[in-house]
Simulated scan of single mutants.
Amino acid sequence: MKRARVAYAGAIHSAVPHPRGLQLADGRVCAENEVVWLPPIEPQTVFALGLNYAAHAKELKFGDQAEPLVFLKGPNSVLGHRGVTRRPDGVRMMHYECELAVVMGRTAHHVERAQAMNHVAGYMIANDYAVRDYLENYYRPNLRAKNRDAATVLGPWFVDAADVPDPGHLALRTYVNGELRQEGTTADMITDIATLIEYLSAFMTLSPGDVILTGTPEGVSNVVCGDTVVCEIEGLGRLQNTIVSDAAFGLPPTQEPNHAH
């Protein structure tokens, strides 16, 4: 089953797909553009994987890692379908990252790989933007590069794990203004979902509502203000958002340095 969270007529609603858009829990039917799309769940801790596809690591000229590269994201980083993401004035390289997002449904502590998938509630699409100018190095992802307000788009749907029988073989695609820019498959992950859960739960407790962003394949490219970006994952839908400038947020130009120090 696919479910969304939206704001409509002054309230937050659960919704499901409908031929005319989506149907709210109270029975009303709305077009996609009549609601404000929120992240499909209210995430607890968000774990993000870096360089989890070998071709993407090579694309960015980073070598092999001894263990998964994981960092955390704050609650203000997440954004819903059809939202806007700010591109700071003056940066040279800001790119999308289409990722499979795994949502935990049960507490996981010292979970073995063979049992790990039993702890997954479902899946979403994520588009985890990065400002490459601000990235210091692969083992220390800079907060300004990867933990920006409204730069981790989630949605449009939360899809139950039972409806995604093989999350290890899903096609991923990213389109910019209708042009295919990125294409890959979750089969190319270096560390698969079950192994990630085993790894994380070995030293910390994973809780229901925690989200694991599993990395992106090769094919990232620069996006600029006005671009519409659509991330698509087989069986999960199409996640859309738009890039805007500092001016859209009422900010004067050059609010941030152009590079990390």
Rank of each mutant, 00 (worst) to 15 (best):
E97Q: 14
V29C: 02
V91Q: 14
D64P: 10
S245L: 10
E232F: 06
W37Y: 10
D227G: 11
T185G: 02
E59M: 14
R82P: 03
L180C: 09
R87A: 11
K58C: 07
D227L: 03
R140P: 06
H259L: 13
D89S: 11
R28S: 12
E136T: 15
A108S: 07
A11G: 05
G83F: 13
N258H: 15
E112K: 05
N142S: 11
A194D: 15
N76R: 08
S245M: 02
P252E: 05
V16E: 05
D26A: 01
L143H: 10
G83N: 07
H13K: 00
E218Y: 14
L72C: 09
G226Q: 11
L196E: 03
E32K: 14
P217D: 02
G184E: 00
L170H: 09
S201T: 04
I41S: 02
T195I: 04
N222P: 06
Q44Y: 07
P17E: 07
Q44P: 00
V46T: 09
V120M: 02
I197N: 04
A161T: 03
L51W: 12
V35S: 12
S221K: 13
A48T: 01
D163C: 01
G50E: 06
G21Q: 06
A66R: 10
V176A: 08
D160Y: 03
Q65L: 15
I125S: 00
E42C: 07
A11C: 01
D133R: 02
Q182S: 07
P217Q: 00
A31H: 12
G178S: 02
Y123W: 07
H119S: 03
Q240I: 01
D26G: 04
G250Q: 01
R87N: 13
E99H: 01
I197C: 08
G74R: 05
L213W: 07
G10S: 00
A48E: 08
R92F: 09
I233Y: 10
P257M: 12
V176H: 10
V70H: 09
A248C: 07
G21D: 01
Y138C: 12
L196F: 14
A66C: 08
G250P: 01
R5L: 13
L79K: 03
V29K: 04
N118E: 09
A108R: 03
A55L: 15
L236C: 04
H18T: 08
H18L: 02
G122M: 04
V111A: 01
Y129V: 00
V131S: 05
V84M: 13
F62S: 14
P40K: 13
D26W: 02
P88V: 05
L69Y: 09
L135I: 15
T107I: 14
N258D: 13
